[in-house]
Design a protein around this nucleic acid. Structure first.
Lengths: 106, 106
DNA sequence: TGTATATATGAATTGTTGTTCATATATTTA
DNA sequence: TAAATATATGAACAACAATTCATATATACA
């Protein structure tokens, strides 16, 4: 089933927000974090270790994602576990991924 | 029907390409151009006029989209008409838009 | 062939963004 | 309460990206 894209009237504001939203996916570090969290919540240190990144880098990027409500933190003792906040995120990730993989095949 | 995001093993390279891909949507000018082209092909000058942007701004951004094969040009006389090259683009645009609109409602 | 029109491009500038490093805050435990 | 651990944050720096302006190229037409 192929959906025809139908253009709606979308305000400048909404288009701006949309581009801002896509920006969150437009960085390698953040997309790797998002990818990791697709399999479940994880602590900051675990993310850093798994992705082989400095703790500070991960914290900075998590703050950006958290501020945008893409991830949400839960404290447990001194660890803070981050999880994806929105169900749509996986969908967007996968749609983009499908495109990339489709193009790879040619 | 809600799809559970299932994490696959994705190479670092692919994740990088994915973030690069999302970058194209992460700019107001480009997302406005993409939005416009969802309704069909359009010449450079028509895009510039419709979006109230300098011709040079539009050309620069079109080059970026063209290089990434997101749009394709067709010359007719001295006008060049640009169209979205990939069917996925509308899908990705709409998925992001759905997210934005969903959040607006709260 | 010269002029007008449509688009593309290069260089300079400016604004933005990611990382690094140092340090601060919060929590646990000795 | 002091030390250790986990995370967050601010400032500085470097890399990058978007716009502007000037100009180049390509096509059409008089």
């Amino acid at each position: 089933m192929k959906k025809e894209p139908i253009m709606q009237n979308i305000s400048l504001d909404t288009l701006f927000e949309l581009s801002e939203f896509f920006k969150f996916f437009g960085d390698t570090t953040r997309i790797r974090v998002i990818h990791l969290l697709l399999s479940g919540e994880m602590s900051v240190s675990a993310i850093a270790e798994k992705l082989n990144l400095e703790q500070s880098v991960v914290s900075h990027q998590l703050r950006i994602l958290r501020t945008a409500n893409l991830v949400k933190p839960t404290r447990d003792g001194r660890k803070i576990y981050y999880a994806l906040d929105d169900e749509h995120i996986g969908e967007i990730f996968n749609t983009g991924l499908a495109h990339i993989l489709h193009k790879k095949k040619g």
